[in-house]
Design a protein around this nucleic acid. Structure first.
Lengths: 230, 230, 230, 230
DNA sequence: CATGAATGAGAGTTCATTCAT
DNA sequence: AATGAATGAACTCTCATTCAT
């Protein structure tokens, strides 16, 4: 276990070797593989994606995948996990910024989700998770708890505060979060499914801002939602 | 018939048939098969669904599928087509009923979609189509044109009329339809993916009515949306 | 089960019916089936021929085949048997006619084989038997003994008599029969394999007569083979 | 190497290899596979040969076949192609040797065909092509043009020259080639079909030389064919 | 007798996984 | 560490055979 193949993944740069010029940044390998995998899983689904394709897209051989992941399933889980972290982190940041501004928090959440998740390579993850939920229930449960429920709680809190402070009309809190986020998830899903088959489609920014405008008007009832227009 | 998966498709599975008659009506067969297929495709995706399972769920043998469909792919297409017709027909009916009442048409469309599509076995089709779009581009294009774009046009017309008649504020028509329908699609998708893995979840009626309330308030701006609350 | 559609196909016209005008000759059915089977077996081989096709060509349903034959294999054997009888009978007749005329017997045998076997639907049997020998060894052995060896013996006797009477040169009797018959088998095989794919091909009569001319010249050495030219 | 089936194809089966190395030379593989395939196709026909058997005979797994060939059909075509090249090449060589000696060319052609084709593993190809012609018309056409017609032309030319130079009697050139070669094809077919089921059978050399003797006597009419008797 | 819907064992084919190099 | 040839279990699809009508 000591001097066999010498995994060089993490730290110590191979003890006695003097110069080693070509060494990928630290170890980007696993991330490259999960990124390639994620893209293909999103596009075609888990079962329809061949390891050959993933390997080819990552520029390695099929066997190499098994140096980093135990199985196709493990690769799937890693890809999801990888793609889920940004979402979690992004959520935390928002609370700090808009902790006491309900309207800003809602607007900020939606815009941030689109910018940092929906419009990126991670935008396909919701579609992927919905599609594979029955095949990977543990992963789906993890995703639900670690990502969805966290976001749901965040949004709900924001709206609750808005109601408490009189900025928002009273609305049913138990359903407000999915109502606010689902149009964005839908757009992200659309762009990762049917959009590539058709031309054009809606303009994301217009879609996003119209959504924000609409729901804030809806939430604020007669009261004018604050004038900020980005 | 209890409270499990809520299947509303035609005959399918024939409840308690322990003796399997060797020769059944040749006519109902295809629908039974596509119904079984659709349920499984929605649950697990196309590639992860085995023909064995479909046959078993339909109460026939594997070979029987090939008496009615040329291939797994043909069965998939037939299942989609079968599940798509109700949506098309339902749309037409609405225009007749609410042709000149924008608010009623929007509310009617959303409620009808949920009742006749979203809450039935067909509610999984959007998820399925999004998941398989890249693998079945022609089917996805057909679905987009025959179902989505038609519904989009219907909703857009309704809103446009509402704006013209002063009932609605001016909003961006190019994005309004997906904004109105996506929460419902999301709920249907949710019920066909993660919901079975977790308990409870949101109450569909509450979700639906809150959505309607929210967007109509959003659309009507300061004006009171007509009082109907169901 | 009585007065439904009134099948009129086969035999007894429905028990109590008085006149029964349309009744196929005795029972031609089995022969029709074996004939259809033989034609297809010859064309495509045993394994590549589907029972559907045979049934279709015979104008019956697939199930009907099983009323007359226990299995595809049984049908094959029956088809061969059926197609082999004429060959056996034809051989007997020749001996009576040309018993003491070696040249006439050789010439008669070759001409008769072509006319009664090679140029008919039975002409494909040799090809079929050669192709299926390994898959149906018993049938092949039967064919070899009942048909081939009998013909071989006949021809050899004829040549032996010709040599004894000084009409023919001495030649190796153990190989003379296949040498005499193989060009005809080859032509029959050709017509049942490659000929249908190409145009034209050789003229059978010219081929046959040239063969007869050639081998009789070869057998008669310097002596003039008797002048008969058909 | 004893007296059984007389296989002369390349490597094939590798005699006594009880330990099967996991990785073998990627280069010899295809020939080993086509050789195994050809032997079985000849024996049992295309449809009756299972890929399992071919793989087993070649000492590989079923999946390995698909590393080298796209389908069973592709393997069939490759096997034919592989087995056809020697025949083509052998033909060319003969013309150089016997270009101006009709008797020698005819005799040389027949002897060479038997030695290099008929008595080898390739001797089963004619039977195979005749059997599968209807199922693989393109292959049959290719075989006809690339092999048969070329040989036919060669023999016809030889005889034509013999007639022109007065060595041979005038005979119908359009049929002479198949008449000369068909006894050899027949013998080769026989050895690949019925012979294995019966004992003994004719002696190939005796058969061959008697054929040559007979047809040369037939062609030379009264004239003595040159004395060579091997 | 005749049919043809239904069956299920078996064949061709795919692809995740292994391992000698 | 990386490769890719090889594997074999699992899948789709075919078709001889059965049997209710």
């Amino acid at each position: 276990m000591a001097g066999t193949a010498g995994k060089t993944l993490p730290t110590a740069a191979k003890a006695g070797a003097e110069v080693r010029p070509r060494r990928r940044r630290k170890d980007a390998r696993p991330q490259e593989l999960t990124a390639a995998a994620l893209a293909l899983f999103v596009e075609k689904g888990f079962a329809a994606t061949r390891l050959d394709e993933i390997a080819a897209r990552a520029g390695v051989s099929k066997g190499t995948l098994y140096l980093y992941f135990d199985s196709k399933e493990a690769l799937f889980k890693a890809a999801i996990e990888e793609g889920v972290l940004p979402a979690i982190e992004a959520g935390e940041a928002l609370l700090d910024e808009y902790g006491d501004d309900p309207v800003g928090l809602v607007r900020g959440f939606l815009r941030a989700w689109w910018e940092q998740i929906g419009s990126t390579a991670y935008g396909g993850i919701p579609k992927l998770m919905f599609a594979e939920a029955a095949n990977f229930p543990e992963v789906a449960r993890y995703y639900n708890e670690a990502v969805i429920q966290r976001g749901v709680a965040l949004l709900r809190t924001a709206v609750a505060r808005g109601i408490a402070s009189g900025v928002f009309r009273p609305v049913e809190l138990s359903v407000i979060s999915p109502l606010l986020i689902s149009p964005l998830i839908h757009l992200a899903t659309w762009r990762n499914s049917i959009a590539p088959l058709c031309g054009a489609g809606v303009d994301p920014d217009c879609y996003l801002e119209t959504h924000i405008d609409l729901v804030l008007h809806g939430l604020c009832a007669g009261k004018k939602p604050d004038g900020e227009q980005r």
